[in-house]
Design a protein around this nucleic acid. Structure first.
Lengths: 337, 337
DNA sequence: CCTTCATTGTAAAACGTTTTCATTCGCTAT
DNA sequence: ATAGCGAATGAAAACGTTTTACAATGAAGG
């Protein structure tokens, strides 16, 4: 029931002006300790809770940031969101979370809704930046940082890993194990990270090892377990020509791959080696445990948010475009050396 | 750059008053079509975007609801959040998402932050309702609905399944397969749902079948895969007395159980039967696929949010305390009949 | 042609803060 | 004493809407 008591009530109770109350609420040092105490007592007694909306209107700061992700129910994005939220909390921000489903109109609509709500900044993750969206980004009155989202051609603040080199490393390690044919199971090609970067890394590794690129070794999935199974079964139909080493674009697809293999009576890693991507918790919940490229989504989220706070505080920033390190976590779906 | 243009600018541009602009923006029918068009043109031309903060201050509605969950990075809560967000979107609300980590002080602090931000309502999920928290709930100026959170003694709006009966069903089905000793792996006992309800269901089923309750058959985990493994290994140490049927309180723990079993050379479901709880996506990503109690988190989220909108719109409400149906999804970690 | 009532538009008062600027207070240094 | 000064306080103007109370306009009925 303390929702209707205002700064003015507190002022009256403490026999000061509302400006003074505002000062103590905001920690302004120019308040005599005795006055501060008087005001604080009144606040406690009345159960005063500052109205953030009014505050936002007056100060033009809402201490709220918008977060747009494709789908929070996906463990991958959920991890990112947690990273964002944790550092947001640290800096006293709240998060308005939105799911875009990678839908172009929805992305734009959400962006506008968030701007309408006067968020202080936005963190965006999506598969590909469309022109319209970039145009909106460019004219945004508040800073926007891209998380795990590619940014070429535009110079928006962004946090990523080097996907191409990560994919290269993964495929390279497979090649180092003597494989001549490497299967590659990835997501939709129009997705920049999966379709372009990882693919490029795959080809680079092949090329460097003087291995031929064979189109039938790459198959498209949609990130899900089922699509991983399906893709592997498709590969299996190649018979003799089926690659014995698979790089899957996500852990979930890698799981599907391994199970498809096992269902067909093959052993992993003895007969087939499999590398995943992302290092979600899934990776350790399968037998054999999954060797995978670690893409630290939590960290990407945390760093993105930190970058955003730096921009908001006008702190010194080394670079707008940060690349986090990646590595391969070797587990049991690949042979040990 | 359209962030600084106000309703007043639009009014001037369209040669009407700001109230008229407000009317067209809010879809008030009392505006002459020609006027409406004139205003709309001005809005489009200027790129006017209503300031939701000012709007919130004037109207005392923010079209924002607060969501407090333990940890969004957990697939389980993420699913809930998605359900909430989807119907929130449907009703034009946005979501401020907060992670409580089930921490008592944090829960209270978050609640107050959200109330300070003038959310129109709150959806809360937590393990147990502490007294202080309930007190805050009771005096909240906005409605609060509990999602997948027990509510006994207090009459807060809530959406749940019948956990006790769900656990009963699961254990019963194990008993029906002829098992005399049933293992039960659950979460911390102070959690109401896991420690009390599911436990009660377990005991009921035992009792009804005239099976003795044996304390050594129940072991506590912390919901994680690892704790599931550990728990199962502990059970295995019972040797001859080890139960051959396990009910795990979460799918993730069930995964751990199955792998612990397999690592020890046992077969599931031939030697051991396992039932999980929640029916997360994990359940189909393991071999054998997991038989599990389905707790429809997405639906719980969606229904919670819908309930909240009903309260906010003062719609007729049959019951404050909705119980969603549950069922057992029979897959391959239990025998077929 | 005058009333009367809808319809549409206007002006101004909230909404609850922050912030700017002015004022007062309490001292110190003359 | 008193001018001068910094610290503490207060008054009032934003902030950008919604909403209320009216005023103006126009149409219809008598």
């Amino acid at each position: 029931m303390n929702s209707n008591i205002t700064i003015y009530d507190v002022a009256r109770e403490a026999a000061v002006s509302m400006a003074t109350v505002s000062r103590v609420v905001n920690g302004n040092p120019n308040v005599k300790p005795s006055t501060r105490k008087k005001v604080q007592d009144a606040i406690d007694q009345l159960g005063y809770r500052p109205n953030a909306v009014a505050r936002g209107l007056a100060s033009k700061k809402t201490t709220t940031v918008g977060v747009i992700v494709p789908d929070i129910s996906n463990i991958f994005f959920a991890d990112l969101a947690r990273g964002i939220e944790d550092v947001a909390t640290m800096y006293k921000y709240n998060i308005i979370l939105c799911n875009s489903d990678q839908n172009r109109e929805k992305e734009i609509h959400l962006l506008n809704t968030l701007l309408g709500k006067q968020v202080d900044g936005i963190i965006f993750m999506g598969g590909r930046l469309h022109e319209d969206l970039v145009r909106e980004f460019k004219t945004s009155p508040v800073p926007i940082v891209l998380a795990a989202t590619l940014n070429q051609d535009y110079d928006l603040p962004a946090v990523n890993i080097d996907y191409e080199s990560a994919a290269y490393d993964a495929v390279k390690s497979l090649i180092d194990h003597g494989h001549k044919r490497i299967g590659f199971i990835t997501g939709p090609l129009e997705q920049q990270i999966n379709g372009e970067k990882k693919f490029a890394g795959y080809r680079n590794a092949l090329e460097e090892a003087n291995l031929p690129f064979d189109e039938q070794n790459v198959v498209l999935g949609n990130y899900t377990y089922d699509s991983g199974m399906k893709a592997m079964n498709q590969l299996l139909e190649l018979g003799e020509d089926c690659p014995r080493a698979i790089f899957a674009g996500t852990d979930e697809m890698a799981l599907g791959v391994i199970h498809a293999l096992q269902d067909a009576g093959h052993r992993v890693p003895e007969d087939f080696e499999v590398i995943g991507h992302d290092n979600t918790r899934l990776a350790t919940m399968i037998r054999p445990k999954l060797t995978t490229v670690v893409q630290p989504m939590y960290d990407i989220g945390a760093v993105s948010m930190r970058l955003l706070t730096k921009i908001l505080n006008q702190e010194e920033i080394e670079t707008n475009d940060v690349t986090l390190p990646h590595r391969i976590e070797h587990r049991d779906s690949t042979r040990s050396s």
